[in-house]
Amino acid sequence: MFLPRILESIDTSISEKYLNELLEMNQITKEHGLVLTPEEVKNMMIVRSQALCSYGRVELDIAMTKELVAVFCTSSYINNDNFATILNELHEIFYYLKNETEDQIGDYKLIHMMKDYFDYDCGGSLELLKSKIEGFIEDFRKGVGLKESLFERDEF
């Protein structure tokens, strides 16, 4: 695919900038006892690129990754040992969800929905989160329960 490659070429030139931006996120996460190492961040960027590629998506910046870090660092089910691994898995889940909901739901809302499921319905289990997400997608496809579960204020 020509397009993702040319967009990636720009990303490569600013990957250093991304790395620094994510490391700066440690200022927020360390309040919750969580810190990402430069190696973990680099690895996360690789996982992100692979997930984007496998789900056929292109991304313009790392705003979504930063939002994932900022939102999930407050979860009581996450500790410094599993933080990076969970974030990697969350990237996969997020892009999958983005495709399955046909880009009709904004990033911010999806991330917060995933966090709510993760904390309140799934007890911090990624397996349960995936299953919950499948249920959500099914409802989305049927067009049932979408507004109740996400957009009480009708913010499409």
């Binding site: 695919m1 397009l3 991304e59 313009l60 979504m64 892009y95 880009d103």
Partner: peptide, 26 residues
């Protein structure tokens, strides 16, 4: 060209999303 494309994609998603599918971007 890529910078113009990026700006267009941002306008397309109206800031709601930082990623789009290949098909949309193409």
């Amino acid at each position: 060209l890529i910078l113009i494309l990026k700006n267009l994609i941002r306008r397309y998603t109206q800031g709601e999303s930082s990623s789009v599918s290949f098909e949309t971007a193409e």
